[in-house]
């Protein structure tokens, strides 16, 4: 039971980063109809911005500055590039955003080198968390005694898990919840949801949808910023991180259903768990995402929660 629990946690942690990136991707696709292959580049900008602020100032400052900075980057990206490609074929959108991603990767390499930059975790996120069950005896050593502890009835004895990864899962849950709240229960969300379904009609009602679309890209970029802040210390800070994460994140979007936020989260959890449960067999792990994509698309061509008419 302990192994199963730890594997599920590992799966959720892997899925968490994919979920945050896939949410941004699917949000941008769902509203603008743009396939944004530069989303990984936004993550790259985020990890470098985060590590620089964390090293030179403080991680707590990075917590505020990085998502805001990425929001601005997203808005500038939409106003400066994406908006000129709304009416162009998806192939053009992919080419320009993919090209931009390469430019960002090379600029990062030029500025910071190709090697990993160590990303120090803040003190409050260091160490492990202890999950313990009935009758567990936790060794009286400082590293265990000072660690956060959580009682769970199904744990045999006790197990430890990297505390930062638990924080990442928690942050993802908060980010997803905030995004859902924003889209479901606010006026901005109503406009965006309506714009996702019929942007022309929304404009006929006097609403400047272009301004909201720019904010949507900013929002997607800000979530990538959060992913970079909390993912950087785990996955490392290298220029190729964006490309590494882009393909699985894009598959998460496809499996979940293009433009479906709930689908993206569901697919991210499925993919994360699949990767965690196949961790002992690297050969299977290397292809499991693609296998899942093939099976899902065979039986549900629009993805798990995809809607008719999107990307068709």
């Amino acid at each position: 039971m302990n192994d199963l629990f730890l594997t599920v946690l590992a799966g959720l942690q892997i899925g968490a980063i994919y979920a945050m990136l896939a949410l941004g991707l699917t949000l941008i696709f769902g509203t603008l109809g743009v396939v944004n292959f530069a989303h990984g580049a936004l993550y790259v900008i985020a990890i470098y911005a985060a590590v620089q602020v964390a090293i030179n100032v403080d991680f707590t400052v990075a917590l505020i500055v990085v998502p805001l900075f990425l929001f601005v980057v997203g808005v500038v990206f939409e106003r400066g590039v994406i908006r000129f490609f709304y009416d162009r074929p998806h192939t053009d959108q992919i080419l320009v955003t993919f090209g931009l991603a390469i430019v960002v990767e090379e600029v990062a390499k030029w500025l910071f080198g190709a090697n990993n930059i160590p990303f120090p975790r803040p003190d409050w996120g260091d160490g492990v968390i202890i999950f313990y069950g009935p009758g567990a005896v936790i060794p009286p050593v400082p590293v265990f005694q000072e660690a956060p502890q959580l009682w769970l009835p199904f744990i045999d004895g006790f197990v430890t898990f990297d505390y930062w990864r638990i924080i990442l899962i928690g942050v993802t849950i908060v980010a997803v919840s905030v995004l859902f709240y924003l889209l479901q229960f606010t006026r901005f969300g109503l406009i965006v949801r309506a714009g996702m379904r019929d942007s022309d009609m929304v404009q006929f009602l006097g609403i400047n949808i272009a301004r909201r679309f720019a904010m949507v890209v900013g929002l997607g970029a800000a979530i990538a910023g959060v992913a970079g802040l909390f993912g950087g210390p785990i996955l490392g800070v290298t220029p190729d991180q964006g490309m590494k994460l882009l393909v699985p994140s894009f598959l998460v979007v496809v499996i979940g259903g293009m433009g479906s936020l709930a689908g993206a989260v569901l697919a991210a959890v499925i993919i994360g768990l699949s990767l965690a449960f196949t961790a002992d067999n690297p050969d299977i792990q290397a292809v499991i995402i693609y296998l899942i994509a093939v099976v899902v698309l065979l039986f549900r061509p629009r993805g798990l929660l995809g809607r008719k008419g999107v990307f068709e």
Binding site: L190, I191, D198, M201
Partner: peptide, 23 residues
């Protein structure tokens, strides 16, 4: 518009609220 363009995925009231967002 010709096909009424009722926005799917939102309620009757939300369609009306949407009309009152912009002055």
């Amino acid at each position: 518009p010709e096909d009424r363009r009722i926005i799917p995925g939102i309620t009757v009231e939300e369609n009306l609220i949407l009309a009152q967002v912009a002055p």
